[in-house]
Design a protein around this nucleic acid. Structure first.
Lengths: 198, 198
DNA sequence: TTCAATACTGAACACTCTGTTCTATTTCAA
DNA sequence: TTGAAATAGAACAGAGTGTTCAGTATTGAA
């Protein structure tokens, strides 16, 4: 099923819209960006926008979906290479790395000027990931802290460290910021989930 | 300098406005609340609102100022009673307690339906408090983590635990949630600030 | 090359919300 | 009682939203 030229045309239009938004968010903050701003930047007509997206939020959320898909694709590729039994897997480091490679996009999404909705979305998504990857490991007998509280806290912790790092234009490597993140949160995770780490 | 009746009248008007907002935030979320909603709820005229506040954000921020002043007053009173040298001082527990006593207001301010602006304001305020109370204790030689990162992280951690607790209608006591908060964050603080706690 | 389908343009529109202005009314203090 | 201050609320201009629609451009197929 070959992609028609019309399909590519639509894709190109959407890409123009998606690429216009982050820059505008970084310039004036998400709330202040108007649909007209996006249109002017992307050089598109008003009705074109509304034929593709319901509103500004919809555009942003679909941008987030795109980012997430990109991240998951990269993850599968990384995970594929290191398919040893003890290879483990470092979610936060992967995220820091991915954020570094797409820092403009990440900064617009989770940085100081982003909208609350996208932060919530990111929080929700990461909570889901964590519940899937980490919560099953919890030893509920040893742990004194409810698992969902621990997950919420850990996601907030991660996002705050990520935001700090991005808003200061990544003053250190992804590996270093991940190490700092782990120093701050690892012992708490042990208390929260009731297990000892390697 | 006696307070005139006109002064009291103004005060009453402002109180009506301040009391209308939290309920509306909890109902439909801060963003969705219009000035007209507030006016209808408070039974006041449009021009009255704008003679007291610049806009909706201004009203919310002054509400936050009020909350902060209330909290600081209570703190001084508590600190006054326990004025021993080793009495120490448990900021997070005081905040959890104050939140419990004013949970509707706190929930509107920092809960899931609040606005991003007020979260930022709260973050800024708490960061200031922490920098004042805790950062001077940091042992920069031992600590591997930048102090401002640690402070940012700790404030985010606190707000996430507070939000979890409030949004679930405080399923445990203030003392218990404070204990959980400390279990999650204390070891990280030691790593972040490079000192041992009592 | 022609033509119908599809995608985009952009003006016009109704709508909601904002913040200001202005006149009338109420409340208060002296 | 009267002047000053506070409030009421209608009217207004302006910004932004999301829809509609007639017209233009591009595409795929005959």
């Amino acid at each position: 099923m070959k992609q028609t030229k019309d399909d590519r045309r639509v894709e190109r239009t959407r890409k123009l819209l998606h690429e216009a938004l982050p820059a505008l968010i970084l310039e004036k903050g998400y709330e202040a960006v108007t649909v007209q701003d996006i249109l002017d930047r992307a050089n598109l007509g008003r009705s074109t926008f509304y034929s593709h997206y319901r509103d500004k939020d919809d555009l942003l959320l679909k941008g987030f979906d795109y980012l997430r898909a990109m991240m998951e694709k990269q993850h599968r590729s990384v995970a594929g290479k290191a398919r040893g039994k003890g290879a483990g897997f470092n979610l936060s480091l992967e995220l820091f790395r991915h954020a570094q490679e797409n820092h403009r996009l990440y900064k617009a999404m989770v940085g100081k000027r982003s909208g609350q909705m996208i932060i919530r979305q990111a929080h929700k998504y990461l909570s889901g990931l964590l519940k899937e990857h980490i919560a099953p490991l919890a030893n509920t007998k040893k742990s004194a802290v409810p698992v969902d509280l621990t997950v919420d806290w850990l996601v907030s912790s991660f996002l705050s460290v990520l935001t700090w790092w991005l808003d200061r234009n990544m003053p250190c490597t992804a590996e270093k910021i991940d190490e700092l993140f782990r120093q701050l949160t690892m012992p708490g995770i042990q208390a929260g989930l009731g297990f000892e780490l390697q």
